[in-house]
Amino acid sequence: MWFFQDIELQPTEEISNAFLWSRVYRQIHLALVSSKDENGIIWCGTAFPDYSEKHQTLGKKIRLLAPEENYLQKLNLNAALVRFVPDYVKLNPIHPVPQRKCKGFAIYSRYQPEQNRRQKAKRYAKRHGISVEKAQQLFPVRQNEVPYPYIQLESLTNHQKFSLFIKKDTAEEHACEGFSAYGFSKRSSVPDF
């Protein structure tokens, strides 16, 4: 049985939804990193109930899911989001996933356009006998061409800003193998409701 905890963003006239996503998701990322078990596995995944590729939006809600309730309790989101609750974030209690409302399963993964550009450049360089650096110049990445919604974040190590593009795919239910430090996976699916 899966469990979930919803976090609802509450933007104001002064504080935008995008700004809240950036600040809140940074704290969620830190909480996920801190929740690793003794084998280094993160058992909590993220979902976005209002996700829309068509409108390139994540909405105003993030859902954290785990196969056991204690994994969500270990995240201690009350402490992680203390600066935002109750003014900018509504943190709901942990509940079991309602089986009747479940539409199936989904996989949320990180899409990295720069990585795709690098792969294209390597293939092109190999086929045409030029350096990878020259080939990369032939494949520019334009942010508005990426079809997925994103969160603007800042690296905690080098303080550079980057876009965390989020891709959603429908999936079959299969055993949870763990999630990344952003709550994503290419294999572990989460209930979609």
Rank of each mutant, 00 (worst) to 15 (best):
I41Q: 08
H128Q: 13
H29Y: 02
P98T: 13
R123S: 09
N116S: 15
K168F: 00
I151R: 00
D169P: 04
L153F: 05
N76Y: 07
T157H: 15
Q73V: 10
P86G: 06
L32S: 10
V141Y: 02
Q119E: 03
D87W: 05
E68F: 07
V141I: 02
L138Q: 06
S16C: 07
V132G: 09
K54I: 03
V190A: 01
D169T: 14
Q136Y: 05
R142C: 14
Y150G: 00
G183A: 05
Y88C: 12
G104E: 12
Y148M: 06
I7F: 10
S109C: 10
Y108G: 00
E68M: 04
E38W: 05
G104Q: 05
K103G: 12
E8A: 03
L164N: 00
D37S: 02
C176H: 06
Y25H: 06
Q136F: 06
P96V: 14
D192Q: 05
E38M: 12
V85E: 01
V97R: 11
E53K: 01
A171C: 13
F165M: 06
Q5A: 15
E172N: 12
T170M: 13
Y150A: 09
D192I: 11
L81G: 07
P93Y: 00
L72C: 12
F3V: 10
V82E: 01
L138V: 09
A18Q: 10
G104R: 04
A66N: 08
Y111N: 02
F184S: 07
H159V: 11
T157V: 15
L58Q: 02
S189G: 10
V141S: 00
Y150N: 03
A80F: 06
S180E: 08
V82I: 06
V89H: 01
Y150L: 10
V132Y: 13
A181P: 13
K36V: 08
H55K: 05
K120R: 04
I7T: 04
Y71Q: 04
S163H: 11
